[in-house]
Nucleic acid binder design. Structure first.
Length: 272
DNA sequence: TTCCAGGCGTATC
DNA sequence: GATACGCATGGA
């Protein structure tokens, strides 16, 4: 990782990083692609710090209107720039199928997102498709001028959230907000708890099962050993790993999962 | 019209 | 503990 200032912007040099693969691979739902630009460009926010980022060429990025402090205190962490994904891919590639997935989706980085936002987002994701998930979260953020903290949602009624058109998930969002505000579920404790215990705690929330819990842990608390199993990963396991993931994934199952998820969704048909 | 989407709660055995 | 079914909404 290297960076330099360019006027009001930061130019970032970072290998193993592709904007489309990282921001549009189903781990985050608030990044919007700007198709009017000649370079791949996304706008979005983390903790309501806005960002416009574009990829000028392979491994070269422009973070618009970003000062050095904000880069170091917000985006360096968010894009997980301290982690060497080249080493991770090398390790995972001891397995043949993983090697293909890593090569196909080698620009994915695991974003370090906010715990509550990830939890809430993946509650919304259940039995839903990605465009509609983005729609619901978009309406949520528009209405509350940014992603609402759970305190703002805890006392709302279903009618108050009708504008979301979130369907049966609205009551789950409210239950999660109530239990976090009341301290019945404590994300700070969950962050460092053993993974099984952490899942158990998250599942106290109505509408949070194993899949959503593992997503919250992986994307919202950077627990890279979390392994969300959705319909796509079920197919991966059935086809390629009926006896479980290979040894080289041990401890970083979540990162392996990211490569596999992207590979089976968009890569398998297109290769040959 | 029917099916499906990064699942989960409930009923039933 | 395993399995079947309904669930809000909207796009294909």
């Amino acid at each position: 990782m290297k960076y330099e200032k360019d006027g009001r912007d930061i130019i970032l040099y970072q290998q193993d990083f592709d904007l489309d693969e990282t921001l549009d691979c189903g781990q985050a739902f608030r990044w919007q692609k700007d198709n009017t630009q000649k370079n791949v460009t996304y706008t979005g926010a983390y903790l309501n710090v806005p960002l416009n980022i574009s990829q000028e060429s392979e491994g070269v990025f422009r973070l618009k209107d970003t000062d050095e402090d904000t880069f170091k205190s917000v985006w360096y962490g968010y894009f997980d720039l301290e982690t060497n994904y080249g080493e991770i891919k090398e390790r995972l590639s001891k397995d043949r199928t993983m090697a293909k997935a890593c090569e196909y989706a080698g620009g994915i980085r695991l974003l370090r997102q906010d715990g509550w936002e990830a939890l809430c987002s993946f509650i919304i994701s259940q039995n839903n498709n990605i465009p509609r998930i983005k729609g619901i979260i978009g309406r949520l953020c528009e209405h509350f001028k940014g992603f609402p903290p759970y305190e703002k949602l805890a006392d709302l009624s279903l009618d108050d959230l009708a504008f979301l058109r979130a369907g049966f998930r609205a009551k789950y969002i409210i239950d999660a907000a109530k239990k976090l505000r009341g301290g019945e579920v404590d994300l700070e404790r969950i962050k460092t708890a053993p993974i099984d215990r952490a899942q158990q705690e998250l599942m106290k929330i109505c509408g949070v099962g194993p899949k959503v819990a593992q997503c919250a842990l992986l994307y919202g608390m950077h627990r890279v050993e979390a392994f969300p199993v959705d319909v796509w990963i079920k197919r991966v396991l059935q086809m390629w790993y009926p006896d479980g993931l290979p040894k080289c994934c041990r401890g970083i199952e979540g990162i392996a999962q990211q490569y596999l998820f992207h590979y089976i969704r968009t890569g398998v048909q297109s290769e040959k």
